[in-house]
Structure formats: C-alpha cells, structure tokens
Design a protein around this nucleic acid. Structure first.
Length: 447
RNA sequence: CGGGGCAUGGCGCAGUCUGGUAGCGCACCUGGUUUGGGACCAGGGGGUCGCAAGUUCGAAUCUUGCUGCCCCGACCA
C-alpha cells in the first residue's frame, strides 16, 4: 500500500479524551475514531489489526474442532424471556422496539439464541458433542465506558458454545477451549495466564479468565511466577486426546484475580520469591455452566436408549476488539506501538527518504514490488514528507520492520533494515532484503 | 448513578471574570529555500464559539434550561 494513496489520519498531538496509552496511540495512529461514548469507527489501519486477530482466533477455534456460524446482533425479547434473563439482565442490555412495537434487544451475548438454534436442529445423541462459535459485534450499555476499545459499549467478540451429553464430555470441551485459548493468545505475542474466576451473570461452576499482564491492567491479579514460563502445546496437539494432563501445568498453580484472591492460600501455596502480584487485562473467559440454558430453553436430546437428555453447556468468549488495545498496552514504547508480528497491520514500513529523486524512487519501486511478490504486506511511504516526520510516523504505527531507503545508502547499493521492537538497524544490500526477512526468528518455535 | 471537569477550525489551546462581532501553535493549500529523526520564510483557505430560550443597541462572554464528552468510584468480555 502506498501511503500517498492510503487513509491514515495521524494525530501529532494527544487528544485530551484519551487517558491510557492504548487509547491514545490508537487515536494518534489513525486506527479508530470515536463515534459516541464507547462506540468507535475502525479506520483502515485499525481494521487490519482487528482482522488479523480475528483470523488467528478463527484458525485456533477451527483447529480445536469448533464450527463457525454467524448470529445476528438484534435478538427478540421473547427468546430472552424464555431463559428468564430479559428481566434479570438489567440496564446493561440495550432494549429497543421495532415499528410493530415488538421488543428487541441488541445482543450482549448469545446463549439463548444458540441454544434455540441448536435445540431446533438437533434431536439425536449422535449429533453431540458440538462446539459452535461466531465472531460478532455485541453491545453492553456500560455505566461508564472508558479506556477506548478496552471497555467500549459496542465491542467485537468471539463467543463459542459447547453442547455435550455428559458433564465429563463437557469438561473435555472446556479443556479444548482452554488449550485453544493458550495457543491463540500465544500466537498474538501475548503471555496469557488462565486464572480461576468468578462466574458472574453467565452462571456455572467452572470458569477461567485469561489474563495478560500490563501495567495499566484494570484488575489486580496474583499468580505463581512459573506460569509466565509455560509454553502452550504446538499445533499438532490432538484435541481428542485427554487434555487434562496438558492443561495441568496451568491449573495446578495458584492464579487468581482480585475478586477471589485468598491471601492466606497464596502465601501457603507459593513461595514468596515466586509470587507475582501485578495488574492484568482480561482477554478471554471460559465457563462451564451445565444445563442452565438448555434446561431453561427446553433443549432435550434423545439418547441411545430412547431417554431424553438435557445437554451440558459451556460458553467461551474472547474480546476481539479489546485485544487490540490490550496488545498495545502490553507492547509499546515512548515512540508508539510495537506490533507483534502476527497481528501487525503491515509486515513492513518502507520509507523513501527522498521522494522525487529518480534513483531513490526507482530503488523503492523495485523493492516494493519484489516484497509484495514475495508475500509481504508493505506500507510504502512515498510521500514528500521530510525524513524525520516519516520516521516518527513509522515508529508511531509500529510496523515490525522498517526499511529505510535513501541516496546515502544506495551509493553502496544498500538499504537500512530496522527492527521496531529492538531499534536494531543493519545495512544490507538491496538484493539481500527478502532473504534477510525470511530468516527464521531465533527462539520462535513452530506453534 | 454519586463526585469532579470540559465543550471555541482536523488536533491542542487562549479569549469568558470586566459584553463591542474570534485568535495562537500544529495540521492543510500556494510559492520559494531546504532535506538521514516531527525544517524555515512569505502568502492563503477553513469556525452556526455544543443546542435552545432569555437579558441587551450588541452575547463565545451574562441568565435559565438542555445535550454531548472526559476523569474518579460502584459494575463489566
């Protein structure tokens, strides 16, 4: 993409409404614009990140055997009356009426709807287990939206729902999602820590929040240091095998959010030098809630012996739009965002230091086209800005690699390759750029 | 919802106390000089001063009502 043809409204100054760093940087980097309190438009750069995150989530859900569908944003109140949540949910739920004066709501979650869909389409035990998911916009009318996309009212969420015949089978579905979440967040360059959690209004007995540590996190969390060193299973993990032992390293160590933290237990279970007390951002939440919704929604399945079985349910959320902010909270410096490679809006930012100079232009054009043919996503700054301004912009938007091309280096046929995360720069021959970019990252195993 | 604050061009702000018809920096446009970490000079364009009613010869400025947004708290993916 040529910057001269792109839509990237950079702000040089901090907008005063943005308090925390991710919100500030997203506004300044031209990723989002606010439309109303807690409601945002996603500009091209932000959208690209959102899509990358979505895609990683999708791949890992699919790998774990979940099946994608898409439910609407608007739901009928009638459905929610069946589960009893229409009245229980409170003012957080946005309620509206259509022209026939029928009650509708903008979905804050989808347990009722998915249960209805599943119920109406399934009658045999042979059709279980299933995990269905979708990635859709939700609305919760928060009392006080804040922190940009981290706590918006409208937000993009992946939510999955499992249906199983027995509690044991439901436990297995839960474990599948547990593993999928470990892998998902790891692929995004995040260290996520599953923590025992309260179940809240969704209900149920078993629940984990997936927390990433960040100074600006909204809640205090406590855990064993060893949890930070664990690596998730690789892509060859067999999701049909017993996953209990696989997740044991995570579930056997103390890890709790503030709400259920028990200081005495913490002290007893974790040696002082291994204790971590930090702030965290919740990016995922998994629940197992038994028959809460299937029962309320009259969902029954015929078993092998002809008897009716009420399926066991679970739901599994990931805050997709929140993750964009969370990743920035976890990965930035004074100059701007530092995108993990897997979610960066572009792989490479190419800076033409002397647009209009025939030699520099042609070297840039040549490399730009080669990089794209090689499969890289490149944002090419071909504008007439001065060098300094271009550097500042590139640092702000945080693309993993910067390629700096100017007459000085071209004299020797070289360009500068700079890694945003480390600031390390090296001069390499024009022809060597692609080979250099393809070198495997040290320490990054195959996931 | 309780407490605090803000609303003036795309962004950041001054002007409001003491009414006289809107200004600064950045950004933008034109020309010139510049050009490896947010250049300089000159000339320009752009604002129903959040909305409504009122006071007044005259309102960004005073009065009343409303709306939007931000921060702290309780609540939450």
């Amino acid at each position: 993409m040529r910057l001269s043809h792109y839509f990237l409204p950079i702000l040089r100054d901090d907008p005063k409404e943005a308090e925390i760093v991710s919100h500030r940087l997203m506004l300044r980097a031209g990723m989002i614009r606010q439309s109303a309190a807690g409601i945002y438009s996603w500009l091209p750069l932000g959208l690209r990140v959102l899509r990358k995150i979505e895609q990683i989530i999708r791949e890992e859900q699919d790998r774990a055997g979940a099946i994608e569908l898409l439910m609407p944003t608007l739901q009928s109140a009638e459905l929610w009356r069946q589960s009893g949540r229409y009245d229980a949910y409170g003012p957080e739920m946005l309620r509206l009426k259509d022209r026939h004066d029928r009650d509708l709501l903008y979905g804050p979650t989808n347990e009722e709807l998915i249960t209805q869909i599943f119920r109406d389409a399934t009658s045999s035990y042979r059709d279980l287990p299933r995990i269905l998911y979708h990635i859709q916009w939700k609305f919760r009318d928060e009392i006080r939206p804040r922190f940009g996309v981290m706590r918006g009212r409208e937000f993009l969420m992946k939510d999955a729902y499992s249906f199983d015949l027995t509690p044991e089978a439901a436990r297995h579905s839960y474990n599948k999602m547990f593993v999928a979440y470990l892998r998902t967040f790891h692929r995004m360059g995040l260290k996520s820590i599953p923590m025992a959690a309260e179940t809240g209004p969704i209900g149920g007995e078993m629940s984990h929040e997936f927390i990433i540590l960040a100074k600006t996190g909204e809640s205090r969390v406590f855990c064993h240091k060893a949890l930070l060193e664990l690596t998730p299973p690789d892509e060859n993990i067999d999701y049909d095998s017993d996953l209990g032992p696989v997740i044991a390293p995570w579930t056997s160590q103390y890890a709790a959010t503030e709400e259920i933290h028990n200081a005495a237990e913490f002290a007893k279970q974790v040696p002082e030098e291994q204790q971590i007390e930090a702030r965290g951002i919740e990016v995922g939440h998994i629940f197992n809630f038994g028959t809460k919704y299937t029962k309320a929604m009259n969902c029954a399945i015929q078993g092998p012996d002809g008897s009716l079985i009420t399926p066991q349910g679970g739901s599994y959320g990931i805050g997709v739009s929140r993750l964009v902010g969370a990743i920035i909270e976890a990965s930035h410096d004074d100059n701007g965002i530092i995108w993990p490679k897997a979610v960066a809006p572009f792989d490479i930012g190419m800076i033409n230091l002397k647009s209009g100079d025939a030699q520099t232009d042609s070297a840039c054009e040549q490399l730009y086209s080669q990089l794209r043919s090689a499969g890289f996503e490149v944002l090419y700054d071909d504008t007439r800005e001065r060098a300094g301004a271009k550097f500042k912009t590139m640092d702000l938007i945080g693309l993993p690699w910067q390629i700096v091309i100017g007459p000085r280096g071209l004299k020797d046929g070289a360009v500068e390759l700079r890694e945003r995360a480390t600031g390390k720069a090296e001069m390499i021959p024009l022809e060597g750029v692609i080979a250099r970019l393809r070198e495997p990252e040290p320490g990054l195993g195959k996931l």
